[in-house]
Simulated assay, not measured.
Amino acid sequence: MDYNKTINLPKTEFPMRAGLPKREPEMLRRWEAEDLYHELLKKNEGKPLFSLHDGPPFSNGSIHMGTAMNKAIKDIITR
C-alpha cells in the first residue's frame, strides 16, 4: 500500500530526502569561496569571547530524556 496518498502534506519544492552526503562537498566549497568563517569572525569582532564547557555526556548515570532535553537546550541557546 502506498501511504503517501493517505497523509496531507504541504506541496513544496523541497526534495523528500536531503541527500547530504552528495550535497555537502558543494556546500563546503561554497563556504570556502565565500570565506564564510572569516566573515563571521569580522562580524563578531570586538564582542566579548566566551567558552561553553559541556561535561561528559552521561556523567550522572544512564542517558534519559532529561539528558536529551539538556543537550537540545544547550544547542538552541548557543545558536
Rank of each mutant, 00 (worst) to 15 (best):
M1E: 06
M1V: 10
D2Q: 10
D2R: 13
Y3F: 13
Y3T: 07
N4C: 08
N4Y: 11
T6F: 08
I7M: 07
N8W: 11
L9A: 12
P10V: 01
P10R: 02
K11N: 06
K11A: 11
T12S: 09
T12N: 00
F14A: 15
F14H: 12
P15G: 01
M16F: 08
R17N: 12
R17F: 14
R17P: 00
A18D: 06
G19H: 10
G19E: 10
L20G: 05
L20N: 12
L20F: 13
P21E: 02
P21N: 04
R23M: 15
R23W: 12
P25G: 01
P25Q: 01
P25L: 00
E26G: 12
E26F: 07
M27D: 02
L28K: 03
L28Y: 01
L28F: 00
R29C: 03
R29H: 08
R29I: 06
R29M: 10
R30E: 11
W31S: 09
W31C: 10
W31P: 00
E32W: 02
E32M: 07
A33P: 00
E34F: 06
E34S: 11
L36P: 02
Y37D: 08
Y37F: 14
Y37N: 03
E39D: 07
L40V: 03
L40Q: 04
L40I: 03
L40E: 03
K42P: 02
K43Y: 14
N44A: 04
N44V: 01
E45Q: 13
E45G: 02
G46M: 06
G46C: 09
G46E: 04
G46Q: 05
K47S: 05
K47D: 02
P48V: 12
P48R: 14
P48C: 10
L49D: 02
S51Q: 13
S51A: 14
L52W: 11
H53M: 13
H53L: 12
D54M: 15
G55L: 01
P56R: 07
P56Y: 11
S59H: 13
S59R: 08
N60A: 15
N60E: 15
G61S: 06
G61A: 05
G61R: 10
G61Y: 04
I63Q: 07
I63C: 11
I63S: 08
I63D: 08
H64F: 06
H64N: 14
M65V: 15
M65G: 09
G66I: 01
G66H: 02
T67K: 05
T67V: 13
A68N: 02
M69Y: 13
M69G: 00
N70V: 01
N70W: 06
K71P: 00
K71H: 11
K71W: 08
A72T: 10
A72W: 06
A72Y: 10
I73G: 01
I73R: 13
I73V: 15
I73M: 14
K74H: 08
K74A: 14
K74C: 12
D75E: 13
D75V: 09
D75L: 14
I76T: 12
I77D: 05
T78H: 12
T78D: 10
R79P: 00
R79S: 08
R79N: 11
